[in-house]
Amino acid sequence: MLKTVTRAPDVRDPLAAALVAAAAMAWLFTGDFGKEVLSEVAVFAIFAMSLDLLVGCAGLVSLGHAAFFALGAYAVAAFGVFVNLPMWMAMPLAVAVTAVAAAAAGFFAVRLGGVFFIMMTLAIGQMVYAFFLNSRAFNADDGMAGIGRVDFSFLALDSGEPAVFSAFAVCAAVAVFLLLRMVARSPFGHTLAALRRNEPRLRSLGCPVLRCKLAAFTLAGALAGFAGALAAQHNGFISPDLAFWTVSGEVLVMVIVGGMGSLSGAALGAALVILLRHHLAGLTEFWVFYLGVLFVLMVLFAEGGVAGMLSRLPRKLHRRGGNV
């Protein structure tokens, strides 16, 4: 990301444009099932992009990001079902609750270095999972059903329709992408990238690194909460499984497989993993196995993920073309 400083800023993001175009095509040309998948992809794209801010930008690997996804989902359910607030109000409140929780958890996590941070996030994720698993108010491991969706009746639209909700989810994903891109390109975002490269030096240059990491952790948590709030509406159902470690793992797989640090790579990863899961789930019961193998291979051999491969593709083609 920082590569472009002082050179012409790269305002084009062909991958992001291609993803939006693909989403539009999917929305236009698929049936209800396709649009359900599209909603799911959009929700997980938001979730993955929020994690990419931590992993790809600031270099903070979290193995417990699903904690905030689940918190957002539970909070929106609590405000929607218990307090009976309309979703337009429940959603921002859920995001605010998640932000506060992320700030509190981050307060402990960000002062730990390297591997300790990773372990702390894993523990945070399991703690939230255990909390919802034991909470009677939320029906423990049975979860809760009957969560409504945002109301578009003022536009004479029914958000129960897959077409309406998927369009809403895609717009939300684009908005989150633009927000995170703005953050990544700001001085704050560049400071996070410098932190990833050399934290001790950045600190000795006067950067309050703990506060910066906490801010990133809170923002990422809040946006994961937003994704969770959307997921709860999309499924109409929540359960402690939302916070399970496999969810944290899966979203990290999305970021790594798609290519971290570019946001659009994370969104691509979300699309790839979800489409792959829908296809593999029909073929094999052991989808997690293949996910694990893919993950290990990507970590070992493809640091830039699929987005990295794609970005190298034009150059390769060009070189080959030049030789002919």
């Binding site: 400083v5 001085p187 975002g189 400071t191 240059l205």
Partner: peptide, 26 residues
């Protein structure tokens, strides 16, 4: 990072620009 980018990061810390997250660094 390049030499100029290294220095820009240091200057940004002196100016406490890390507080700014809504405008482009460039």
């Amino acid at each position: 990072l390049t030499v100029a980018e290294n220095l820009a990061i240091a200057i940004a810390q002196r100016k406490k620009l890390y507080k700014i997250f809504w405008r482009g660094f460039l």
